[in-house]
Nucleic acid binder design. Structure first.
Lengths: 129, 129, 129, 129
DNA sequence: GTGGTCTAGACCACG
DNA sequence: GTGGTCTAGACCACC
């Protein structure tokens, strides 16, 4: 986890870090109380500027996912799991909603949309992405 | 058509204009040969910077949707309808695909995704958005 | 407004900017829809690095006090006044609470605390700070 | 006494130790001449870095609250009680003052502040914090 | 012109 | 060692 960053996919690096931490908490690969890698270490590992990591970690603190432990680093907050689970789903629901609404506004029928969704869902499992 | 611009929804204004023209062509509210509003007029109507309209029209020319008519402005290209129909669908398919792939990467199961899609699709028709 | 920054009082510069904007909104000296000074202009005016202003403005966006208007700057959000009013009071209430609780833990009696509060409150108005 | 440290409340740990010693002296739970726990023992008890305890004790020596006793450790200074009593109050007075001044600068009226103080004071006794 | 992101490197307080 | 703040300067997309 916290391994791979794609600097060219348009998603800001700090955002990718935030998402990866959020997912890791949501699926239990980091548990409350554990420390996340230090700013310098992670920056090193991802070949990224420390400030970029700082920014990601700061946003995660603002969300209440990380808490500072004086002088020893940042830890996953006790109550962060549910937050992250929620957030993960609500983010996706929201993206999905806006795509579908956009399509609907563009007079794509409900039936067509359903077909589209089905074909894309099948594609996912086939490709074992 | 070509009425409403939202400067605060994250989608670039020129992109919003492009989409609206594309849709209008796709659903027949503008037909090949017709002129689009002049840069100045449209900029005025949408309360938008003329340069932004220029950029949208430029991109639409590059796509072959608009063709310059010497001295009188820009018109919808003769063969643009099919292009726009295609594009409309492919745009949506692509957005949908990226949303679903993202979710999949985040370990949301196919079943969960199908449920999500269904609930959002139902939401659309109920609200008669 | 947004005039004076004290670089040596321990409060981070970006925090001082945030507070000043919040207060300005709360007391009506900026109204919803108005633009705040541009990053570069404010940085210039306060003799501060642009990034510092960027950070303050970003936090204010996260709070929903500022909204970006594509290409033309940042504006006060429509629903920001109540937020800022609330926040202003809740911040103070919280500081006050923690000071009083600390004192209470230290066995200062309620009567002593009341006297302290009174004397300090009187001090304020006398000095016309 | 000297029991509980909160590594996540923003107050530096060495500061928390200093305050707890000061309070203990002020309210008589340690008396002049008594020894404070050794650095190692206290560090152990509080699950804290020994250097942190060293720093707290160093500051307390600088304040004249602790005096070194050759070979046997640190003891409460003979004249420290009045100092600590004073300090306890002045610390609180100062915190209170800065909170109120901040509020005043933010255009909270004296009447509002008085109400706030009253409500928070009542809260204290009710909760028997 | 606007804001957004990122890098590089400095200094600080804390443990 | 840790995170937090700030400066300086670069590049980008958008209007």
């Amino acid at each position: 986890m916290l391994r791979h960053i794609d600097a060219q996919n348009g998603i800001p690096i700090y955002e990718q870090i935030i998402r990866q931490v959020t997912i890791a908490v949501a699926d239990g690969s980091i548990t409350p109380g554990e420390h996340v890698p230090s700013v310098r270490e992670l920056a090193n590992r991802l070949a990224v500027n420390p400030n970029t990591v700082v920014r990601a970690y700061r946003d995660l603190q603002a969300q209440g996912v990380l808490v500072p432990v004086r002088g020893t680093g940042l830890a996953i907050a006790a109550d962060s799991v549910s937050k992250c689970l929620e957030q993960r789903l609500s983010l996706i629901r929201q993206s999905l909603r806006s795509v579908l609404e956009e399509a609907w506004r563009n007079r794509i029928s409900k039936a067509e949309l359903r077909t589209l969704c089905d074909s894309e869902l099948n594609r996912l499992t086939e490709e074992a992405l």
